[in-house]
Write a protein that binds this DNA or RNA. Structure first.
Lengths: 186, 186
DNA sequence: TGACGAAGTAAACACGCGTCTACTAACTTG
DNA sequence: CAAGTTAGTAGACGCGTGTTTACTTCGTCA
C-alpha cells in the first residue's frame, strides 16, 4: 500500500513537467534554465535529466502534452472562423493563452529545437486545419490562418491591449471572423 | 588626403554594423555572439563595445538603420492591400526579407531588448499603418495586419515553400490581397 | 534485521557568454 | 624627427549554462 510517499518518482516527474510547461510558455526555450525549472518544481536539478534525458527532450515532452489545437478545430465547420476569431480575440485582451501554444511562439527562434517546433505546429494546427478545408490550395489557406494566429501571439507579447487601442472584444471578434472567413473560403 | 587607410574607424564601424545586421536577421538576438559579429566583420571584438557601447546598443542601432516599413506603406492608398500582399508573398517564396524586419521577428522573445523591439515595430509599421487608415479602430486593424506580417515571417522560418504546398505566387498574392482588404477596410 | 535498489542531493565539470583592461602600432602634428 | 593621439589587439575576468558524477537517504523485501 502506498501512503504519503516522500519519495515519489511519478509525482516529481509531473511537478517538473508542470513547472517546465509554465516557464517555457512565459519565457521561451532559451531563457528557461534547468535551475529555474528545478526551483519551480521543488526538485533537484539532476532529476530533470534523469527523468527526461535533456532540456531539449523535456521541451519535446511538454509540447507533446497537447494534441490538436485545443477546442477550436472541433465543432461545426461553418462556425470555424468564429471559433478561431474567439480564440485569437481572447488572447488579445487577456494574458491567458494555451501554454503550449505560447511556448511554441516564444521558442521558434532557437535552432536547437527547430525541428520539434516545426513538427508540433504542423501536427497540432496546420495539418488538421488544412484537413478541414476543401479546395485546391488548402495548405496555403491553413498556413495563412496559422500565421495570423502565431503573429497575434507575438504581437500581444509586445503590446498591452491599451497600446493596441483597447478595442472592444466584440469588435475584435467581428473583424477577425471576417478575416478568417476570407482566409479559409475556397 | 586619405589614401588606403589601414586604420579606418568609420569603415570598421560600418563593417561591424553590416555584419551585425545580417547575423541578427539570420539568427536572432540571443544566438548572435559578439565573437561571431567580430569574426564576420573582420574586426576585433573589443571594438564593438568601443564603437557601440554594448551588444544591446548595437542591436538598437541596427534596427534604427531602417525607417518606415520600406517601400510598402508609400504609394496610393487603394493599392495598399496589394502592396502588403506582394511583400508577404515574396517572403513566402524566397528566402529574402528585409534584414531589419527579420531581426525584429527572430528577436522578439528576448526580454533584454523587449523595449527596443516594441518601439521599432510601433514606429516602423504599426503607427504609420494606422495613420493611413480611416475609421474608429484603426489601431486594431493595423495591429491585425502587423500580426499577419510578422506571423508569416515566423511561419516561413519554420517551413519551406514546398512544405506549405508550393502555392503559386499569384495565388498567394490574390488570397493575401483580399485578406488585407478585409483587415484594413472600415 | 540487514542488504539492496532506487529517489534524491551536492558539487563540480567544461564551456561559452558579454565585458573590460593593458598593451601595441599606426598615423598625425608640432 | 619626436611626441601625442587613437585604431586595433590579446587575453583575462566573472558569471551562468547544460550536464554529469559521486554520494546519501529512504523504502522494501528476503
Amino acid at each position: 500500500m502506498e501512503g504519503v510517499r516522500r519519495r515519489d518518482r511519478e509525482g516529481t516527474r509531473q511537478r517538473i513537467l508542470d513547472a517546465a510547461r509554465g516557464l517555457f510558455a512565459e519565457l521561451g526555450y532559451d531563457h528557461v534554465t534547468m535551475r529555474l525549472i528545478a526551483a519551480e518544481a521543488g526538485a533537484n536539478i539532476a532529476l530533470i535529466n534523469r527523468y527526461f534525458g535533456s532540456k531539449r527532450e523535456l521541451f519535446a515532452e511538454v509540447l507533446a502534452m497537447q494534441g490538436r489545437f485545443p477546442g477550436v478545430l472541433d465543432g461545426p465547420r461553418e462556425e470555424l472562423p468564429r471559433r478561431l476569431a474567439e480564440y485569437v480575440a481572447e488572447r488579445f485582451r487577456s494574458d491567458w493563452a494555451s501554454p503550449v501554444m505560447t511556448a511554441l511562439n516564444r521558442s521558434s527562434a532557437s535552432p536547437e529545437i527547430h525541428g520539434i517546433i516545426r513538427d508540433r505546429v504542423n501536427s497540432a494546427i496546420m495539418e488538421p486545419l488544412a484537413a478541414l478545408l476543401p479546395g485546391e490550395d488548402a495548405q496555403l489557406r491553413a498556413a495563412v490562418a496559422t500565421a495570423l494566429i502565431t503573429g497575434t501571439g507575438t504581437l500581444r507579447q509586445l503590446f498591452t491591449p491599451e497600446e493596441l487601442g483597447s478595442p472592444s472584444h466584440d469588435a475584435v471578434v467581428a473583424r477577425l471572423t471576417r478575416i478568417f472567413e476570407v482566409c479559409l473560403e475556397v
